[in-house]
Design a protein around this nucleic acid. Structure first.
Lengths: 220, 220
DNA sequence: AAAACATTGTTATCCATTTCACATAAAACT
DNA sequence: AGTTTTATGTGAAATGGATAACAATGTTTT
């Protein structure tokens, strides 16, 4: 099952999709080779960090030359499981949920919102951006039928925890949580938060309290 | 101007808005005191980390008692500049931009999208969620009139860099960047990225490659 | 084919952050 | 009032991540 590759540092793992995207750009632009220095300029990550990141996967480059774009690209495609489509569920089709439905994850990643759930009768049964919206009452059933194990959570905060509990029972393993709620989950689940208000507010804080130009870039 | 307080670690600064939000919840719920252990359970941050974070601001608690909710809340209100309203501009009123317009930042933070820009003639001049939409051609002028120094960027990726250059000239100091582009900015500016595709994909990667239950929670 | 050049992979170092563990002191109890 | 309980604040250790710097090695040029 889980390809127990050597454990890559989390910070590195978070940068992989970024590298992959830029490699695709380079490929489309017809570039054949790239150095860590060039890549660094494009993705705004120190070149030594890039080399270190790549090195966890072995020697992918050639000294004095750099990296072969095609080779690197196909390597990352395998590593990031881009060959198989990953199906994701959207729970909560409000403003943000609707925006995510229209957001084309497929374009960059082989990941697709395949189904959505809501409680608004006006939406149920309809399709948006080609995605059918089901009633939340049918969530467990539909998720298991489709074999979905990842959910994007965009419901009002007060419902977040109880819906998470249901997702856990339905064998969902990962949640991308857009609600402000800090979810309690079984140890077998993984939650990534995207907390819009916190992001905005921490930006405000940094601007007011840190000498601007103190630090260059901060990654989420 | 910039209250040159002792430099709080960045990781701490990013958690402050989170603490603030939960303290508000506790306050609404009528709680008078709270311990770092309780808070830890609620925000999913180790209690020692919470105590350390608070300690950068001095001794806010009392041994054997914990923290007084009201005191802590008013302290953070000052620290996070919640007394003055922070005005923010939205650049790009597409799907995601529209969702953010409807997202009520004001509720939790004293931060408000005060103005929006787009190039779609159908939208220009109208208001959405009480926010007037101007033509992007007028951006510099309007920003300076309103004295806005923070922008949320939700435009198509190919336009991101050139618009960023214009924002820089218009004296904007902070950008919350929702586009996949990695922006090049002067050292006087600060960019926070929220890269939706990367977030989703890295979640997928973690689930496939890390023994689930390996790590509890990851922050953004 | 030799010399000059470019760029990796990695070692050693540095820095930031988290966590442990406990002395200290206040609060609660008897 | 004295004893026990509770929970802070922090020194010290551990972890995690970024960066500098350079030997090794392949590439390009002449």
């Amino acid at each position: 099952m889980s390809s127990e590759t050597l454990k890559i540092p989390q910070a590195t793992a978070k940068r992989l999709p970024l590298y992959y995207r830029f490699l695709k750009n380079l490929h489309s632009a017809g570039k054949l080779r790239v150095s860590s220095a060039e890549l660094s300029e494009a993705v705004k990550v120190d070149s030594a960090t890039i080399r270190r990141d790549f090195s966890y996967f072995g020697a992918l480059g050639k000294k004095g030359y750099g990296y072969n774009v095609d080779y690197l690209l196909s390597f990352f495609r395998k590593t990031l499981d881009q060959d198989e489509l990953t199906k994701v569920a959207l729970v909560g089709v409000g403003n943000l949920g609707t925006a995510l439905l229209n957001y084309n994850f497929l374009k960059n990643n082989n990941t697709k919102i395949s189904v959505a759930f809501d409680i608004d009768e006006a939406k149920i049964g309809s399709t948006m951006s080609g995605v059918t919206i089901y009633h939340m009452d049918d969530m467990e059933k539909v998720l298991e039928e489709l074999g979905i194990s990842i959910a994007i959570l965009t419901v009002p905060a007060p419902y977040a925890q109880s819906i998470t509990d249901r997702l856990a029972k339905a064998n969902v393993k990962g949640i991308l949580n857009f609600t402000p709620a800090r979810l309690t989950v079984p140890a077998t689940m993984r939650v990534h938060h995207i907390d819009l208000a916190v992001e905005l507010q921490s930006l405000v804080y940094f601007l007011k309290h840190y000498g601007v130009n103190e630090v260059e870039e901060i990654e989420e």
